[in-house]
Design a protein around this nucleic acid. Structure first.
Lengths: 357, 357
DNA sequence: CTGAAAGCGCTTACAG
DNA sequence: CTGAAAGCGCTTACAG
């Protein structure tokens, strides 16, 4: 019991031992806090670029004391003074979704390199949640935002753009808003998917996508339709739009019905839909690619495992993360920069299910 | 060109229109900034708990002006004054790994509820990176840390614990350090795995885990060995330790060799190993469960898809996130709290590959 | 080469 | 019920 109390007292003591500040260093070194601040802030800088010269000896002494006192600049004070947080907010659909988790990781790495901190938020495709998240982040004082817009958030996105907070949209674009955007060439992606299937002898190819008014969903549909038309398969065009709140059941119905009609191949519009579709096909006892061919979307460990593996459209994840971050940095550094759109190229990963038999 | 300039000027104007502060509100309302601050900080609070009473009318007027001026408290100033950031750091292995991504999502949701912001960092099982990340986060001034320790980080973890920064370890424990921890009952998990396989008629069951001195890896091995012993299968015990930097190749060798020896079943120690193992089995043309049975670890969309699906140990992801966060909150609120360990229960998700034929 | 001082926006005893 | 004032830790002209 006594031991316990001693231990607690020690904890409290340590707690009240405040962290060292520039004031402590200044006292110890017998110089002004201004000098300490200056030395601390000009560490890595090229001597010629420094505003003032500090004598080698003083500088060294200050640095040494700082080290001894285990000095760490107070971030809040610095932020308050500088008006810059070195933090960005990243608002995406769901960070537990593999596609976004992968991108998150790339952004994290890149931000770390640039001495930026990133705060993630998931919207679950809910516009109210997106709005709330962005507000919280802005209140926190982020320097910029990377946002995956969701259906219904268009007006709010426009208002954020108007407020001139540095911002980059990712994965999906929003019409009539002057904002930088990083997206996939979705039409090219679906064109790739259709071509592959046509090459392998299919003509009854149907698409399964989301029933959401999102740029990427719309463009993927368009890409599918155009590609089908290009191959003279207009009459086989069929797009099934799935409500993302009820994926499992709807995919089951759609796939079951389509297979019954003798469809030869499916193109799925997202990774979640692909997984769901493969499960359904499996449970129906339908063999891929023997009975039905499949082209999925996004990388998934599942695709490689699925029987002799399915083919899928692979998005350049790293580029998504990097380009979004880099573009945001540019906007942060130059607030007057023109907004721009970066379009990334997809590529097709062949699986036996799409190749010629 | 002129239009362009006009546009830029507007941007600049907007930019220099500074955000409203309590001072602006005070001026507008004809009261002191102290009063404004007080009103703003006691919004939701029970009137009886408020330190002072402010006249209804004044309060309402201030709130109204705040709203009109779109006032948002400056986070940096508040933090500087309060010495509390309402931000926690979460350092995990790799946020793009499904297991951690899922947990991250749970922590994010929970933190959001409690008005906390969370900053994630990935270590890639690299102790130096972990150390660096934690230092950056502490410099940023987080209120607490959730850490997935990696091999080699033990001493550093101990030093962080000594500094009395509120901290919770997750997924893995560290010996001889007085720190709260949330872990899976790994022995129970492997016991479940082995029992299931024995039930389905296997006796030549081998385990494939990581070659890492981590508590969870060690406990899973122990769990496997004990369970095998309990069933009188001591002589069949075989644990294969994989170097996590070279998973693919090593798993290929180990699995290939074991199958050659007529092994009946594999227990994999993590999701990554399971995926890797299933790929190898597939590429070797070995049918699961007909030729070899498999019990994997962690949920993966891939498992359900894998042929007639494999069985796997499912970890309670939500609890991992929630318990870790809640425990950390307790430590933040009560700095003298005794550290404690929360052990979560695994459960087995049956797949046809493990069930009796 | 170095120091004194103002100020970033907020909170919190203290005084009335 | 309300105000004046100090101070959180830092940066940045300004002055010498």
């Amino acid at each position: 019991m006594y031991l316990q109390m001693d231990r607690d007292r020690t904890i409290t003591d340590t707690m009240t031992t405040k962290k060292a500040t520039i004031k402590d260093i200044a006292n110890e070194a017998g110089v002004s806090i201004a000098l300490v601040s200056f030395v601390m802030s000009n560490q890595g800088k090229d001597p010629d670029e420094r505003l003032y010269k500090v004598s080698e000896e003083t500088s060294r002494r200050i640095l040494e004391i700082a080290k001894r006192l285990d000095y760490h600049p107070n971030n809040a004070a610095r932020t308050l003074r500088r008006g810059k947080t070195n933090t960005i907010g990243v608002v995406l659909s769901d960070i537990s979704n593999k596609f976004f988790a992968d991108i998150a990781r790339c952004i994290e790495d890149r931000a770390y390199k640039y001495d930026y901190t990133v705060i993630f938020g998931s919207t679950d495709e809910n516009a109210a949640k997106l709005e709330n998240l962005v507000k919280v982040l802005v209140d926190r004082g982020i320097d910029g935002l990377i946002i995956v817009p969701c259906a219904g958030s268009e007006k709010f996105i426009a208002s954020v753009a108007d407020s001139h907070i540095p911002m980059v949209l990712m994965d999906r674009s929003v019409d009539n808003v002057d904002v930088s955007t990083v997206v996939l060439d979705n039409r090219a992606a679906l064109s790739l998917a259709v071509s592959t299937l046509v090459d392998s002898g299919c003509s009854r190819i149907e698409m399964i996508g989301y029933d959401m008014p999102l740029s990427n969903a719309i463009e993927r549909e368009e890409g599918y339709c155009r590609a089908m038309a290009r191959f003279g398969l207009e009459e086989n065009i069929a797009v099934h739009r799935i409500d993302f709140r009820n994926i499992e059941q709807q995919v089951r119905e759609v796939v079951g019905e389509a297979v019954g009609r003798g469809v030869e191949a499916f193109v799925f519009g997202t990774n979640t839909l692909t997984i769901s579709g493969l499960k359904v096909l499996d449970s129906l006892g339908i063999k891929v690619p023997e009975q039905v061919r499949v082209v999925g979307f996004d990388d998934s460990e599942a695709f490689e495992l699925y029987r002799t593996s399915v083919a899928y459209i692979s998005q350049p994840i790293e580029q998504f993360g990097q380009e979004s971050f880099d573009l945001l940095m540019k906007h942060i550094r130059n607030r007057d920069m023109q907004s721009m759109t970066v379009t990334l190229k997809p590529h097709l990963v062949e699986g036996k299910s799409s190749s010629k038999i």
